[in-house]
Design a protein around this nucleic acid. Structure first.
Length: 589
RNA sequence: GCCAAUGUGGCUCAGGGGUAGAGCAAUUCACUCGUAAUGAAUAGGUCGUGGGUUCGAUUCCCACCAUUGGCUCCA
């Protein structure tokens, strides 16, 4: 496949290469615009780049754009591709380019051109009757685009700002082979099948109700899983020298004013009033943690002081942002604040990094680190910010992990290290974070008595490992596709009697295994074995045990495993004791 | 919050200006069963909510609520 560049050079590129894909999808976006302009000449074009998977193009149609319109546009694109149009590249002056767009009424393009330096030449890529200014590169001929699918229509603000008009964004994907499109669509289907909202319902883990948008209800199995994550969290944190506290769900407005949250996040806080006093339901745990710290005098000998809180927080997120457990209005943070001296900062940050590494490793997650620096709307002095950023940098570099800098993405009170996990289908999620905070200790006038007998200001950091336990559970559901490892499975074993003649033996087994801390369920339904197996498999239970005449007589179990190919799942008969130790062994993994 | 789409029994979905349909699940009965669905019967719905148009609305129109896909936002 030939690829055309600004400098007229033609390169040979493969679709499988990153650059090749980008050129291919970028050209597809141009074809999309060409199709739109053929069908709706009055439509105005915004921008249309290649993205990670496919491409999009923003348009101002001036009318509601529906799925029927989308289908027509897709058809037109296919026709354009059949015309085998060759792409050419040329340039013109800024004025000429501006005039060209003005003639065509492309006001958004005019705005973009007007921002380019006056003396710069502007490159245009043209295929057939359609030309647009673009930095390229593009594929040499539209006929390479053998398969096209327009995926969705969405609103998107012009240039990403809420203050600008909203354009209609069309998302699409294209490939050089029809089979590749089929494969891609199949992948999308598979991703849909592991959607945590779908599995949450099917596996009876949690639900969201109309009566509480964004406020999850946990069912027994879902809460069991959440508690298993918490048990694990507590075990590791205890080992790492963390103590745990709990602070009130709701505190007075004056506290939030003091912490700065009232100023910065009032519109996202739930508030109420009691006896003429304003209260806010906590959107964060920190201010409560500050009060706990202040409740007594501290000595440097207590440092580093690691104080955890599994705090339930509520944030009034905008309605359009809600997404199952991933973005909810109520969630549990695995928060902790570490108070320390300056000389302990480095080792404490690295300690949290090790902790995060251990946690994510347990779930088989790869992760990436980002360092977020000072945002626009922030508090504190330049010196404090610089010191804080330098400390985080030194700590990451000290452990030798690669990281990227995310300019201006810090919290309003301090910079942070963010940990993005990559799940089994390649998506990334921000979970863990380590945030240095020079603000709150000052605002709350925290102090400790140093070795010199004088009062000093402690350094504090906030950190979470899971982030939101609820969101982390959502990610786990999708990562495992509902097939949880034995230690996390709400039901580890399902007992299936061959007929109800063996129900009593099944009950005995269930009791025996429960006493040995195995999470077991018994299928008491009056169905055939095949049916029971099918039902249990749909519940994604890791082990099924079948009991009938033979097992009852031998006081044994016949085991079937979820995690092997279909024809190898029957593991045969074994002693109950051996089976239980198999489960316990796998719980450690 | 913004743009678009969707909302019908517990679940998945069909239908459509004239008394609401299927499959699965549930319940009951029969079968007592050996590794991915035994058969039969029964019950279950103000068609998201509120207005409007109409002789008549679940269906058409409007508003609201919720959900979905995005955008903005995410301490």
């Amino acid at each position: 496949m030939k690829v055309l560049r600004n400098d007229q050079q033609v390169l040979e590129m493969d679709f499988e290469s990153k650059e090749g894909k980008k050129a291919f999808w970028h050209t597809s976006a141009h074809v999309l615009a060409q199709a739109v302009k053929r069908l709706y000449p009055e439509a105005k074009c915004g921008i249309g780049p290649a993205i990670e998977n496919g491409f999009y193009y923003d348009f101002d149609f001036g009318f509601p754009f529906s799925d029927e319109h989308l289908a027509k546009v897709e058809e037109m694109m296919k026709e354009i591709v059949k015309e085998s149009l060759v792409l050419s590249v040329y340039d013109m002056s800024k004025e000429e380019a501006y005039e060209y767009m003005k003639e065509r009424g492309e006001s958004y393009k005019m705005e973009l051109i007007s921002e380019i330096p006056d003396d710069e030449r502007i490159t245009f890529y043209k295929q057939g009757d359609y030309a647009e200014f673009c930095a390229g590169p593009h594929i040499g001929n539209v006929s390479h685009i053998k398969a096209i699918k327009l995926l969705s229509v969405a609103g998107a603000y012009w240039r990403g700002s809420e203050k600008n008009p909203m354009l209609t964004r069309i998302y699409g994907i294209s490939f050089p082979k029809a089979s590749m499109l089929e494969e891609y669509l199949k992948q999308l289907e598979e991703a849909k099948a592991r959607d945590h909202r779908k599995l949450g319902k099917e596996l009876e883990l949690f639900a969201l109700m109309e009566e509480g948008p964004g406020l999850p209800f946990y069912f027994p199995k879902g809460l069991l899983m959440k508690n298993l994550l918490i048990d694990y969290w507590r075990k590791i944190h205890r080992r790492e020298g963390y103590e745990e506290i709990s602070t009130p769900m709701m505190l007075m407005r004056t506290l939030w004013e003091k912490s700065g949250h009232w100023d910065h996040y009032r519109e996202n806080m739930y508030t109420t009033s009691v006896d003429d006093t304003d209260y806010a339901i906590k959107p964060m745990n920190c201010p409560g943690g500050m009060l706990v710290y202040k409740s007594k005098q501290h000595s440097y000998k207590e440092f580093p002081m690691r104080v955890g809180e599994l705090g339930v927080v509520h944030r009034a997120e905008k309605s359009g942002t809600l997404h199952g457990l991933m973005r909810a209005r109520c969630f549990t943070q695995d928060d902790a604040h570490i108070f320390m001296r300056e000389d302990q900062v480095m080792s404490e940050i690295q300690g949290v990094m090790r902790l995060i590494d251990e946690f994510y490793g347990r779930f088989g997650f790869q992760y990436e680190i980002e360092l977020s620096t000072r945002p626009e709307n922030s508090i504190g002095s330049d010196e404090e910010w610089e010191l804080a950023i330098a400390s985080l940098k030194a700590a990451v570099e000290g452990v030798g992990k690669p990281y990227e800098i995310n300019e201006g993405d810090g919290a309003f009170y301090g910079p942070k290290l963010d940990f993005h996990i990559r799940d089994s289908i390649g998506r990334t999620w921000q979970c863990g974070t380590i945030q240095l905070d020079f603000q709150l200790p000052q605002r709350f006038d925290l102090d400790y008595i140093g070795q010199d007998g004088e009062k000093h200001r402690p350094i504090m950091l906030h950190r979470v490992v899971f982030g939101s336990i609820d969101r982390f559970l959502g990610i786990l559901i999708e990562h495992y596709g509902g097939k949880f490892p034995v230690w996390l499975s709400p039901v580890q074993v399902k007992i299936l009697p061959v007929s109800d003649k063996y129900l009593e033996y099944g009950r005995e087994l269930a009791r025996e295994m429960r006493d040995l801390d195995v999470r077991v369920e018994l299928d008491e339904s009056d169905e055939k074995l095949g049916y029971k197996i099918r039902a249990a498999r749909m519940e994604k239970v890791p082990y099924l045990i079948v009991v009938g005449e033979k097992e009852e007589k031998n006081r044994s179990v016949s085991v079937r495993s979820r995690d092997l190919p279909n024809d190898q799942q029957d593991l045969g008969e074994m002693e109950v004791e051996d089976f239980v130790s198999l489960i316990h062994e796998q719980e450690k993994e």
